[in-house]
Simulated scan of single mutants.
Amino acid sequence: MPTPEASSIDSTARAHHVAAPVESAGGPELPQYSVAKVLAIWAAAAVPMALLAWVVTPVAAGGDASEGRFATVLIAALTGGLVWQAVLVLGLVAHEQRSLRWPVLRDALWLRAPSDDRGRRGGRLWWWVAVFALGFFLVQLVPTGLPEPSDRSLGAFLASTEGQEHFSGAWGLFALVVVMMTFNSFLGEELLFRGLLLPRMRGAFGRRDRMVDALLTGLYHLHQPWSMPGAVLAGALFAYPSRRFRSAWMGIAIHSTQSVVLLVVIGTLVLR
């Protein structure tokens, strides 16, 4: 039977849309965010990316920029936005936990091996990555019906003669893409949505936290709004196993399959 003190804490938490701290993946309890705080952190990630893509990039590239220069500036700008997300995550964890030591980060950001309610950890649970990665691949084949600007389509640029010539022997640009992909599928986007936000959203959204996390992932793509429908579906494929197995590594691994494929394609062009 709960004590009067515990009941008082739960009542106060519900009144502010914040639940009492919940257990991390085998680690210490994590505080729960209010709806307002979740949305504020989302905006702190999404708005800079939109400004970098739609305001900073055109100005920095110049009105008469070639396709190659525009693509390079856009990649650099988005990389900066993703790096900012990593800084944001570390800053929030440092404020919350008063430490950035690895054991603290590991528990605070769910950077532990997947585990289930039966007490299993790691091992065969990692095979779920392959299942959800297949779903992620299929999602990317579904047409969204939204037009994608030709000057912002990386796929179209890589398929063009100018794009292939632009990447040929461009090891510096390739290194920049590696950094962008690393922060996109791990240190920035995934660490923010599945490492920081998802473990702290149950207090505000209950069991709908995975759905809300996926929706926020899609709406975050203000820098490329044509991808929002697919990003919501992809976000669900990242959020479900991350929550189910209480491990951000699941979302990171699934998302990283896209990065690996893209880096292989671009690496092939660089070697030409």
Rank of each mutant, 00 (worst) to 15 (best):
A13Y: 07
V18C: 10
A61P: 02
G172H: 06
F157K: 01
I254H: 13
G203W: 01
A170W: 12
R124V: 13
T217M: 07
A53R: 03
L191M: 15
Q85C: 05
L215Q: 05
A234R: 14
A36S: 09
D10H: 12
G135K: 09
T268P: 02
A15G: 15
V177I: 00
A94D: 09
T217C: 15
R194D: 06
V93H: 06
F167E: 00
L138A: 11
A43K: 09
S185Q: 15
F174D: 13
D116M: 08
A239C: 05
G195D: 04
S115W: 04
S11E: 12
A253E: 08
A46P: 08
H166S: 10
L263P: 08
L154E: 11
L269E: 14
V261C: 05
R152M: 12
F183S: 11
W128K: 04
A239I: 03
R208L: 12
L30V: 12
P114Y: 09
H223A: 13
V18K: 12
M250S: 10
V56M: 03
S259I: 02
A40K: 11
G267W: 03
M228I: 15
A130E: 02
T12H: 07
A170R: 14
G135S: 09
I41P: 00
S247C: 12
G195Y: 00
V73D: 10
W171S: 01
T268E: 03
G123K: 07
E96Q: 13
L154W: 13
E190Q: 15
L111S: 03
L134Y: 09
T268F: 02
D10N: 14
G155S: 12
S185I: 00
T72V: 03
K37D: 07
A231L: 11
S7K: 15
G80N: 01
W226H: 13
S185H: 14
D213V: 06
Q97C: 10
G155D: 14
F132R: 05
W226E: 05
A204D: 06
Q85T: 10
H255I: 11
A19N: 14
V179P: 10
S242C: 05
V59S: 00
L154S: 06
R101H: 07
R200E: 05
R98W: 06
W128L: 14
T79S: 15
A20N: 08
W226I: 04
G80F: 03
Y33P: 06
V47P: 04
R208T: 05
S259C: 09
F157T: 05
A130G: 04
R69W: 03
R101M: 00
R244P: 00
A36Q: 04
S153H: 08
R98E: 04
F205P: 12
S242I: 02
A133Q: 10
V93C: 07
D117W: 04
R243C: 11
A36W: 15
T72L: 10
E190V: 07
T268L: 08
F186G: 13
W84G: 00
A133L: 10
W226D: 02
A20R: 11
R98Q: 04
A65H: 00
P4M: 06
G172E: 00
N184S: 11
L271Q: 10
L154C: 01
G27P: 01
R106G: 02
L105F: 02
R118T: 12
S24F: 11
W102K: 10
G81C: 03
G172M: 04
G230Y: 04
W110Q: 08
A20P: 05
E190L: 01
V55A: 12
T161K: 13
A45G: 11
G123E: 06
E23R: 14
M250G: 13
L74E: 05
S7R: 15
A86M: 14
